[in-house]
Design a protein around this nucleic acid. Sequence first.
DNA 1: AATTATATGTGTAAAATCAACGCAAAACAT
DNA 2: ATGTTTTGCGTTGATTTTACACATATAATT
Lengths: 229, 229
Amino acid sequence: MKGTYTYVYPRPSVTTDCVIFGFDAQGLSILLIERGIEPFKGCWAFPGGFMQMDEDAETCACRELEEETGLKDVHVEQFCTFSEVNRDPRGRTVTIAHFALVKKSEVKGADDAAQAKWFPIDSIPPLAFDHDRILRVALHALREKIHFQPIGFELLPKVFTMPQLQDLYESILEVQFDRRNFANKMLMQGILTEVNDGTVRKGTRNPIKYSFNSEKYSQMKAKGFRLEF
Amino acid sequence: MKGTYTYVYPRPSVTTDCVIFGFDAQGLSILLIERGIEPFKGCWAFPGGFMQMDEDAETCACRELEEETGLKDVHVEQFCTFSEVNRDPRGRTVTIAHFALVKKSEVKGADDAAQAKWFPIDSIPPLAFDHDRILRVALHALREKIHFQPIGFELLPKVFTMPQLQDLYESILEVQFDRRNFANKMLMQGILTEVNDGTVRKGTRNPIKYSFNSEKYSQMKAKGFRLEF
DNA sequence: AATTATATGTGTAAAATCAACGCAAAACAT
DNA sequence: ATGTTTTGCGTTGATTTTACACATATAATT
C-alpha cells in the first residue's frame, strides 16, 4: 500500500550507508556500487538504504550490505551520522554511516555481485551524494580507532604473517615502521598466537604465521589493559 | 496544520539529545531536565527534541540546548546515534546524541531555567528512556576524546590554574596524576599561555594562571602534531 | 650452476620519555 | 608564633622508544 504513512510533523528519511574496507597485497581498498539511475547515475556509491521500522541501524547496515554485495558476517560499526539539509537532492535524508571491515581473501560475493567493484584507496572514482566526505570521515575514524582497538585483524586472513600485519598498519596509518620494532611491539602486546601449520620452518624467508588471540585480548581488556599503536 | 505529512514508507522520528558536562571545584557534573509528563514523568532527561527539516543535527542540538537551558555558544559535538527499535515507548525514534561542554563558571542560564539542575556525575538520579545508556556512552566518548583533543579547556574558565586543569583531567579520567609530572607534561605540549593578570606573584601558594592557546594548537596540529594524554 | 639480491628473524646500545620523589616559600589554620 | 597546606621547581633511576647490523634460506639473475 502506497502513501499511507501520515505524521503530524514532517520527518526526514533515515538511511544507513556502509564504507567497506578491504586489504590485500595491493593495499587498502573500498568496495563501491555503481549507480544505475539518477541522481548521480554512473557515479559510484556506498551500499546502503532505508532503515526499516523493525530494525536498528546496525541491522540495517548489515542487511543492505548483504543484499547489495553478498557480504555476510563482517565487522560493522557506526562511526558518524550525516544530516546536512541538502545532502540528498531527492529529499531530506539522514544517514547513519557505518564502516565494514572484510577479510577480502576469505570472502565470497562482493566482487561477483553485479556492479560492485573494489577500488584502491588512492584511485577512488567520482562518488555520489556526499560520499566523498563520508569516505574521508570513515578513513579518519578507522585510523583513530586502530590505534587502540585490534580491528585491523578483521581485514586480514585468520592466519597471517608479521609483514602482512605491518603492511596493513602502514597502509591505514600511512606511516612506515621499522620492521624489528614493529614486530617487538606487536608481540609484546601478547595478543598474537603463533600458528604451527605443520610445515617445518627452515630458513627465515618463509615467515612465521600468527593468528589474533581474541580470548587473550578480552581477558586483558577486562583487566584494564589498553592496546596502543 | 495537523497530519499533513504523508510518505510512501513509514519513517522514524529523528531527535537529538544533548549530554551536558560541566566542571567546577566539586568535580564533573551533568545538567538534566525533569520530565513533567508521561512517559517517565518525574524522571530526569537530557535536553533534546525533534529535528526540524531546515536544520542539521548539530544545529538542532544547539537550538534545543538553548531553548531548554538557556545555554549558548558552547562546544557541541555528535558522538553516537541510538536507533534501538523500542528505545521510546511513544514510537520509533532515532536520536543523534551529542555532548556539550560548558564553562560552568562563566555561564548564565542553565540552572536558572525552570526544571534544569546540575547533578554530580556520581549522583545521577533515575533517567528517562535509554538515557542511562546514552550517558555511559557519552562518558566513554569524552574520556577517549580528551586523550587526544584539547577539549577539556571547554569546561574551564578562560583563565585557569594548573591544579584546576589537573583536577579536570583526574575527574574525567578517574585517575591520579603526580602534580609535578602533570604540569611538566602539560607545559611541554606548548599549548598553554601564561596569563599575566597584573598581580605580582609572591610566594607559590597563589598559582600561576594559564589560558589555552588555540592558535598555537592549530598551527601544531596542522604540522602533524598529535596531543597526548 | 653459480651468483646475486631479497625477505625474514633476532639482539643491542643510545636516546628519549616517564615515574617517583625532596625541597623551599608563602599562604592559611590554629 | 607555630605548624600545616599549597604550589612551584628540579633531579634521578626506571622504562620505553628508536636506530641500527648480521645471519640465513629463498627467489631472482646471470
